[in-house]
């Protein structure tokens, strides 16, 4: 899983997206089963499935590799969803789907996700590793140590990169507000 992370991500994303879409579609059709199913339970389901597909029940030591790849996938899925719902301007009484929960969760930290994603992409253009770390931490919730293991650098390096990226993002956001 270490080598070719980008390739692995490319494989997972359709898988995850497919699962999440199916769930979302199911709920949006007003299936009565929806009220027995917790929204993020469904997201987690998708992840378990994907996880099995990729590393067939990994030992705890390999989990950080899985999370690193998964965070990329998750980002793509969530950003797409965030864009979708902006485009369709769903009102307050629209059916909520599991992806909404996740997007809301993340947007509580980042603000408008689609825009923030663009910002992160810009960061990656000039500072690749810090941007990657942000992705892993925000979408995968990875700890400093896990990022270090996944990227094969020291935790201290990760820490600095992380602080830098955060500072940069805040700076860019502040500049954008002017």
């Amino acid at each position: 899983m270490q080598a070719g992370d980008a390739g692995a991500a490319a494989e997972i994303v359709p898988l995850v997206y497919h699962e999440l879409r199916a769930i979302a579609g199911h709920l949006m059709r007003g299936a009565r089963a929806s009220h027995t199913l917790q929204p993020t339970a469904l997201v987690n389901e998708a992840w378990l499935k994907v996880q099995k597909a990729i590393d067939g029940g990994s030992s705890p030591n390999d989990r950080h590799h899985f999370l690193a790849v998964a965070s990329t996938a998750m980002r793509q899925v969530l950003v797409n969803h965030a864009r979708d719902r902006k485009a369709h301007k769903r009102g307050g009484d629209a059916v909520r789907v599991p992806l909404d929960e996740c997007v809301d969760l993340i947007e509580a930290e980042t603000g408008d996700l689609a825009g923030w994603h663009d910002l992160l992409t810009r960061l990656a253009a000039t500072h690749e590793r810090p941007a990657r770390i942000v992705e892993m931490r925000v979408f995968g919730g990875m700890t400093i140590d896990e990022c270090a293991a996944a990227l094969d650098v020291s935790p201290a390096t990760v820490k600095v990169d992380w602080r830098f990226a955060r500072a940069w993002l805040q700076d860019a956001l502040a500049a954008g507000e002017d």
Binding site: T143, R166, D171
Partner: peptide, 30 residues
């Protein structure tokens, strides 16, 4: 400017991120 932003500690703070992961992915690592 960047250092000033860094000094303010609240943006994307660690415990919140970990909690998000725990809630979304169901594990908090370790």
């Amino acid at each position: 400017r960047l250092l000033r932003h860094d000094d303010s500690d609240e943006y994307l703070d660690e415990p919140r991120l970990l909690r998000m992961r725990a809630q979304v992915l169901g594990d908090d690592g370790g």
